[in-house]
């Protein structure tokens, strides 16, 4: 059994077994009532990187320059100045798009805006918050102490700390809705979804996007489908395309409690770099443990009481230690 399989299969049962008799476990969080999200359809992505450029423009991020020779944005992965990047999966002779064997496929990397976000759960100072209405995971630079626990708690390695700046901060996609930008609040869509020429990055409510994704799953490969672009609830335009052979898997529907940014593709998601996640979020387990131990500080208080009594008894008549 390899590590990935192990984690996938045993996570749920293992979690259950160990909680027995402790306390009621905290379940996964539920999606926000008006959760905003995006749907990335890898089969529609043509690798134009319009979303990467749009993201940098909208968020005012500088291009990632590699060495002195490449004077254009060549971000390799998420970085403090890169909230969104298109990566490629390749295999063999790389001839066929969206083919697992001898093919290639594009994959978007950006904040998934988890329904049960790890970063939000682990942040000690509430610098990361899941918006109660839109479900967008936002960042408060004035609260952040730079401990980077969020980076360890994120299953997707999304938050990026600016190590090269002595007064650096954390950087991640906030769905173009951070203070000063607030595109969502102003009725606009995310920069990447707006720029996408094929509708590979589709904007909308999580609910509508999930419906759209399920609709695509049900389509027969080869038949022509009118793919929407822009906002799935009110598409700016459509384009016709033959339906590819989708994997019957909507990443983000259930993974670790689900995500607001969902992915569909023709390639298995582990090949596209998605982590081995079960349905239960890890932070729901850690919070269960933590709240079992520290519920209203009752247990520590009782323990402290007992300890105090013991120490008092053992130090009485002898200032510093027990009986010799």
């Amino acid at each position: 059994m390899n590590r990935r399989d192990f984690l996938k299969t045993s996570l749920g049962s293992a979690a259950m077994a160990a909680t027995a008799g402790v306390a009621e476990a905290r379940p996964n969080l539920e999606p926000a009532p008006q959760a905003i999200g995006m749907l990335f359809d890898s089969t529609l992505c043509v690798g134009c990187k319009a979303c990467v450029t749009a993201c940098k423009t909208v968020n005012g991020n500088k291009p990632t320059i590699v060495g002195e020779d490449l004077q254009w944005d060549s971000a390799r992965d998420l970085a403090p100045e890169t909230f969104n990047v298109i990566k490629v999966y390749t295999d063999g002779n790389q001839l066929t798009k969206d083919s697992e064997v001898d093919g290639f496929a594009f994959e978007k990397r950006s904040c998934m805006h988890c329904v049960d976000p790890g970063c939000v759960s682990v942040c000690p100072v509430t610098a990361l918050v899941k918006d109660p209405v839109t479900g967008i995971v936002t960042y408060d630079v004035d609260a952040c102490i730079g401990c980077r626990t969020c980076m360890t708690g994120c299953p997707y390695n999304v938050p990026q700390f600016d190590y090269d700046n002595p007064f650096g901060a954390l950087h991640k996609c906030e769905m173009c809705n951070q203070k000063g930008l607030e595109r969502i609040n102003n009725g606009m869509m995310t920069g990447c979804a707006e720029a996408c020429p094929t509708g590979a990055t589709l904007f909308g409510s999580r609910e509508a996007l999930l419906d759209e994704a399920k609709k695509r799953m049900a389509l027969k490969p080869g038949e022509v489908y009118n793919y929407p672009r822009g906002d799935v609830r009110d598409p700016s335009s459509y384009h016709e395309k033959a339906v590819p052979e989708y994997r019957q898997h909507i990443w983000g529907e259930k993974e670790a409690g689900g995500t607001n940014v969902m992915h569909i593709s023709s390639i298995p998601f582990d090949k596209l770099g998605m982590p081995p996640l079960g349905e239960r979020s890890f932070v729901s387990i850690s919070e269960s443990v933590q709240h079992t131990l520290y519920s209203y500080m009752a247990l520590p208080a009782v323990v402290l009481g007992g300890l105090t009594w013991l120490v008092k008894r053992n130090t009485d008549g002898d200032d510093e230690g027990g009986e010799q």
Binding site: V120, S121, V122, C123, P124, V125, T126, A127, D142, A143, C144, I145, G146, C147, R148, T149, F161, D162, Y163, F167, G168, A169, L170, V283, S286, E287, Q290, H291, Y294
Partner: peptide, 30 residues
């Protein structure tokens, strides 16, 4: 912890009750 803290000048947020996240294990450790 302080030298590793990326935004060390804001460390006091850890001790401000209205900033605390009681779900956070890190808070408890800190």
């Amino acid at each position: 912890a302080i030298i590793d803290m990326g935004r060390w000048w804001q460390f006091y947020n850890l001790f401000l009750p209205w900033q605390m996240n009681f779900n956070s294990v890190m808070l408890e450790v800190g």
